[in-house]
């Protein structure tokens, strides 16, 4: 296959960032790519206000993989809905590349818990959906999609309908759809939680490999500690409702990482630490 795709593909590896909008701070550290500052949110439940989030702050640097873990019901997904602009925080700011994006939709690529592929579109046409809605040229997008589908071993399914794919394969397609979208930030909302244990660990290894080759800024929601440790650079542990950050854990393991990492003593120690933090939160 001739290869006219690479110029476009390189955009993915280094998302186009307006250089003027990323000034360096005085100490030389780049400003965070994404910053949540003091996010609070409550929902009306009958006549009562149910406080779900309290003063949550977190940062994602460019090319950083950040996981958010916490007990179910701690509003982790709500956080992504806010970054995606579908929901507004009651208080606080969401800053992406120095721009306040509260309530602005389409600023982040998104991979939901269910694949949410459109059943009437073929796989390749699903992959280009995010590019298409952003008005990017169709032929170029299709070529890029086919190239990527080949790369992840789904080339034979390019013109199949989602119905014919297994759950794990559908999630790969959903990830490609987010990855190939025009947004440089990716929000992944418990993407593997509906998969069986074996497929899940396969998918983790797959995501790890693709991400390490492409290094995008990621916010990854999960309640799976091992998954978070294997994939992330930084983990934020949320409390139960009202959620606030109880720990920010840097994950020290060098990259590229391999699955075997989970059996090392350092990994096990860190896993225990996180498990205990979460357990204390649930019992406390």
């Amino acid at each position: 296959m001739s290869d006219p795709i690479h110029p476009a593909a390189s955009i993915l590896v280094e998302p186009e960032v307006d250089a003027s909008s990323t000034p360096l701070q005085a100490n030389g550290n780049p400003r965070p790519f994404l910053e949540l500052r003091g996010i609070s949110k409550s929902f009306a439940q009958g006549k009562q206000q149910l406080q779900v989030m309290e003063n949550i702050s977190l940062t994602v640097h460019e090319g950083e993989f950040v996981s958010v873990i916490g007990p179910s019901g701690s509003g982790k997904s709500t956080l992504l809905q806010m970054i995606g602009g579908v929901m507004l925080p009651d208080q606080g700011d969401i800053i992406l590349q120095n721009q306040r994006i509260n309530g602005l939709q389409g600023k982040a690529g998104y991979m939901p818990q269910q694949p949410a592929l459109l059943p009437w579109r073929t796989i390749e046409k699903n992959v280009i959906l995010a590019r298409e809605t952003a008005g990017m040229p169709r032929q170029e997008s299709l070529a890029l999609a086919r190239n990527w589908l080949d790369k992840v071993g789904l080339g034979g399914f390019a013109r199949a309908y989602p119905r014919t794919l297994s759950g794990g394969m559908q999630q790969r397609v959903a990830f490609l759809r987010a990855l190939l979208g025009p947004q440089s930030l990716l929000c992944l909302d418990e993407p593997f939680s509906a998969l069986d244990a074996f497929t899940r660990s396969e998918m983790q290894a797959w995501l790890l490999r693709i991400w390490e080759e492409n290094r995008r800024s990621v916010v990854f929601i999960t309640h799976h500690i091992e998954e978070a440790l294997l994939l992330s650079d930084t983990i934020y542990v949320l409390s139960s409702r009202p959620a606030h950050v109880i720990q920010k854990v840097p994950v020290p393991f060098p990259r590229p990482r391999r699955e075997e990492l989970v059996d090392t003593p350092e990994f096990i120690a860190l896993r225990r630490q996180l498990t205990e933090a979460l357990r204390a939160e649930l019992n406390g």
Binding site: G85, Y110, P112, Q114, A116, W120, T133
Partner: peptide, 26 residues
């Protein structure tokens, strides 16, 4: 219309018209 697909379209910034033609109508 499927709520998850609708939410996805909103999250990626699809306009009202795009949501209608690409999701709701089909």
């Amino acid at each position: 219309t499927d709520r998850v697909m609708m939410n996805y379209m909103q999250m990626i910034g699809a306009t009202r018209g795009q949501i209608f033609w690409k999701l709701e109508l089909p």
